[in-house]
Design a protein around this nucleic acid. Structure first.
Lengths: 147, 147
DNA sequence: CGAATATCAGTGACACTGAAATTA
DNA sequence: CTAATTTCAGTGGCACTGATATTC
């Protein structure tokens, strides 16, 4: 069956749309938004402090956007900012104990609920999807000048 | 190679993120936003007038959101609202000549740009991606009560 | 001085909910 | 009266650009 570019795109948007909605309702009780959660995980994965700019780069957003994101997480007490002793221009971000706990809690909750995104796919299917998405939309080349 | 659910999800978000950014810059010169474009296509595909509620359903958004979307398109002169003679509660939406032209222009521009979303994939890969996405995030079951 | 790093201020795009008006 | 359809008003999430302060 032939699938046009337009059709895939349409379905992709719809999927994104649903996933976002689901994430939002799933995460709301825990007091974090989807973007905040992604930022949290970025910090959690790197063990050790992470610079603001590093977070922005990993999330592929403008540095200014990372500031607001981290602001929210800081207000929620999930992460903390600290000065970098080696470079006083930069700000280092680390998880607070509450942040560590929430991250674990979330992983646990999702696993036991079996409610994860893409959870309906087999491991093989996930691998296929991963490789297809990797090829689909290559990074923007012209993205280093992001303000 | 094993791919975790978290990894696919992460990549999916990133892809969505890039696709959205690209769409926005591609469409901006033509005066429409990505969501507006999708709404425009929804009306274009159905030949004949479309009810507001139908648009909302097709885009999987709340009726109230469709109102604002259509507002923008109407202001841009791309679509027109008309009363439904058979049901005075409903509003019918049709493309204006300008809307028809822009739709054609848009299709043309995308084709010649060769830079389409998912254009790097082969037909077979698109079909695979399509079927995977279809399985990935089934509709929300509990979505009929959307306000 | 030029480059890097983070932040402040303002804006745009998008979808949601709750309440209201109109009509079936 | 109940249900359907659309709209009004307000809000939340998220990312952007331009300008600014500080530091390398």
């Amino acid at each position: 069956m032939a699938v046009t570019v337009a059709e895939v795109t349409e379905l992709f948007w719809q999927t994104a749309h649903r996933l976002r909605r689901r994430s939002m309702t799933d995460l709301a009780p825990l007091g974090v938004t989807p973007a905040q959660f992604r930022a949290l995980r970025t910090v959690a994965k790197a063990d050790g402090p992470v610079r603001m700019g590093e977070i922005a780069a990993r999330l592929d957003i403008a540095p200014r956007s990372a500031t607001s994101l981290v602001d929210g997480l800081e207000q929620a007490g999930l992460i903390a900012r600290a000065a970098d002793p080696d470079n006083r221009r930069s700000v280092l971000v680390v998880l607070t104990p509450a942040g560590v706990e929430l991250t674990a809690q979330l992983a646990q909750a999702r696993k036991s609920a079996g409610q994860q995104a893409f959870g309906k796919l087999t491991a093989a299917e996930r691998a296929t999807l991963f490789s297809l998405l990797s090829k689909a939309i290559p990074p923007d080349a012209d993205r280093s000048e992001a303000n």
